[in-house]
């Protein structure tokens, strides 16, 4: 592939990303699932589950924001584009389907990243406000690692969202399978409750959690937020997230190519 063609494709990818950001970020499902829903979960666990540690509440909500934000944007974008037939406009343009999918994945990831950072910042600053302790106790933020972990979580989430959205004709068609997988991951990937507690009934089943990308997100975020960085572990988490993202994107492109024929 020549440099000229690559730069042409990247410019087209960015045009699609920018258009999606402007058109779909403020749609109600994006706002609800990206911001409102994670905050509701936070307060539910803050009030109803005192056994959940502050660290898990924070990383859990940041993970859920990225996961729900990025996946929901994909569900909104694809179904609305299909309904208004603007998807045909993109398909008839001289752009590879892979680049088209990549452009849309980036728009979802940016949304997931932004909402997760906003929600995370609110909780870090004011999460313990009601207990008059100021900043969250034990907080030892590694900003760069934290940003990378949030971004990779957003990328893997938007790629996952793609798989269920590329064929969807309406939001519900994408949302119901997404909800099954999203809630499943919340409960088995150690998002709010540590994995050892989740699998206390059968410790040997813990490996199941490592079949899902969000487990690696939570691990990376815990390390980046509470100063417990183990470089090898962190690298493994990042590589796993990149691997899942690439795999999900390839699957999404295949489904998309089949759906447009």
């Amino acid at each position: 592939m020549s440099i000229k063609r690559l730069s042409d494709d990247l410019l087209k990818v960015w045009a699609i990303t920018e258009k999606d950001i402007r058109m779909y970020y403020l749609k109600s499902p994006s706002i609800f699932f990206g911001i409102v829903f994670p905050l509701i979960l936070y307060f539910t666990f803050a009030m109803g589950r005192p056994c959940v540690t502050e660290a898990h509440r924070l990383t859990g909500v940041v993970t859920v924001s990225a996961l729900f934000g990025a996946t929901s944007v994909e569900a909104v974008v694809f179904s609305l584009e299909r309904r208004s037939r603007t998807m045909d406009r993109l398909l008839v343009a001289p752009i590879h389907p892979g680049a088209l999918i990549f452009g849309k994945a980036i728009s979802g990831a940016i949304f997931g990243f932004i909402v997760a950072i906003i929600v995370g910042a609110i909780l870090m600053l004011f999460g313990s406000f009601w207990r008059w302790t100021g900043l969250m106790p034990g907080l030892k933020l590694e900003p760069v690692t934290f940003m990378i972990a949030v971004f990779l979580t957003s990328i893997v989430s938007s790629s996952l969202g793609m798989i269920f959205s590329v064929k969807a004709r309406d939001i519900t068609e994408a949302m119901w399978p997404l909800n099954v997988i999203r809630f499943l991951m919340i409960f088995i990937c150690g998002v709010f409750i540590p994995l050892d507690e989740t699998f206390a009934f059968m410790p040997s089943a813990k490996f199941i959690a490592y079949l899902f990308p969000i487990t690696y997100s939570v691990e990376a975020l815990m390390q980046a937020t509470f100063g417990m960085i183990q470089p090898r572990r962190l690298l493994l988490d990042f590589l796993a997230l990149i691997f899942f993202s690439a795999t999900f994107l390839m699957i999404a492109v295949k489904i998309f190519n089949r759906s447009i024929r």
Binding site: D8, L11, K12, A15, I16, K19, R22, M23, R89, L90, A93, P94, I95
Partner: peptide, 16 residues
């Protein structure tokens, strides 16, 4: 949700 101008600019970018 775009203006006529924005629609044309976006399409132009898709065609380089």
């Amino acid at each position: 949700d775009f203006t006529a101008w924005e629609n044309l600019m976006f399409t132009g970018r898709l065609y380089s």
